[in-house]
Simulated scan of single mutants.
Amino acid sequence: MQIGVLTLWQSKDNYGQMLQCYALQQYLREKGHEPYLISYRFIKEERQYTPLWKMLLKVYVIYPLVSLLGMCVEKRQLANEEFEKYQHEKKRNFEDFLNKNIRRSEIYNNLVDLQKNPPIADCYIVGSDQVWAQLLSKSENSVFFLDFGDEKTKRIAYAASFSMSEYPENLRSKLAENLSRLNAVSVRETQGIGICNSVGTKATKVVDPTLLLGTKAFENITAKRMNSNQYAFVYQLNIASPDEIRWTDARAYCSEKHWDMIATASSGYFEGREILKGAKYVYPSIPEWLSLIRYSEIVITTSFHGIVFSILFRKNFVYIPLNGVHSGGNARVLNLLSDLKIEEKCISDGRTFNDVASFEIDYSKCNRLLKEKVAESSSFLLDAIYS
């Protein structure tokens, strides 16, 4: 069956986004289908860069000259940061992974393009990732409810995430209307079931596509071990200060163990910056990022997919939940830890960093529970496709 998948895919540094996109396509391919990514450009995520030749001219010629006169210091700093970001993303090389592993449609720049010339498919799937965090106050966002194509084409939501506990009251009628377009609905968090139910739509909770695909598939694309020393891997996402990842406690814990500390920063709610003093920052490709998790002694992270791959590779880990306005993003992790009965791996008011780091996961029990969740999720998706 020809299946078009609509999801988030444009990030140049968010490993989880790219890997969930890969995982669902690979899973469907293994089941005998012909999936492809509907290459819809989600403008909010797409960063616009100065052409490389202009960037180099600014960084190495124009701004050094004018800075001698005490001018444009701030602009020169911004240009340096932009060039540094470009270099980091060149090392990560997401485009290479995308080209080699993900089949894509032609580019669609907006919903109108999709409606005028819809991709041909027997079935459309939206998900996973935070596709429904894009509020329907903007009409363009009905794209994430598959508002295009032949009415007879089957439409499925798989592991879609709202990244909120309640949908805005004034938009619920629009949500109900858009959900009614779908033949089957599944979400990634318990809160998503509540939101769907509140507007009269039945929804099923399923696992993220990365868990659906399973460990073996990711082992096959993981790079070889890159560090001979023992190390802790810190995957930094959605934080603006070291305190938000309990950096002082993390350094003390790893120092006692005589582990190196390797960090990777990605952009989410905030730009990924080198803010952790004492960490060695690296900018790995996707296979190298998987390797950094697989061969680490412990993973310290604020990231959902950082936790997912720690579990898949049976690693020790510490999850540090987000605070304040972004705390809604914790639900996906907390739901997963609860489902697998390993809530002790999350820092809370009653659990210190050392408590969480020292707690040993019984992975035989954890994997039994995960296997059940994967089987349920697989049944949902395949039943939805074939029904």
Rank of each mutant, 00 (worst) to 15 (best):
Q2K: 14
Y15E: 14
L19T: 01
L19M: 12
E30M: 06
E30W: 01
K31A: 10
G32L: 09
L37K: 03
I38E: 12
R41P: 00
F42A: 01
R47D: 12
Y49F: 14
W53E: 15
M55S: 14
Y60C: 09
Y63H: 05
L68Y: 09
E74T: 14
N80S: 09
E84V: 06
N99Q: 07
I102Y: 05
R103K: 14
E106K: 14
Y108T: 03
K116I: 12
I120C: 00
C123F: 01
I125T: 07
Q130E: 15
S137C: 13
S139F: 10
E151C: 04
T153N: 04
K154C: 05
R155A: 02
Y158L: 11
F162G: 06
M164L: 10
Y167P: 01
A176F: 00
N178M: 11
V185A: 03
V185H: 02
S186M: 09
E189G: 07
G200Y: 04
V207M: 05
L212D: 04
T215L: 02
K216M: 05
K216V: 13
N229F: 11
Q236N: 04
L237V: 10
D249W: 08
D249M: 07
A252R: 15
W259R: 04
A265G: 05
A265I: 03
E271D: 15
P284Q: 11
S291E: 08
V299F: 00
I300Y: 10
K315G: 00
F317P: 02
V318A: 10
I320T: 15
L322A: 09
V325D: 15
H326W: 12
A331V: 13
V333L: 02
N335D: 15
S338M: 09
I347G: 05
A357K: 01
A357F: 05
S358T: 07
S358D: 12
V374F: 03
Y386D: 12
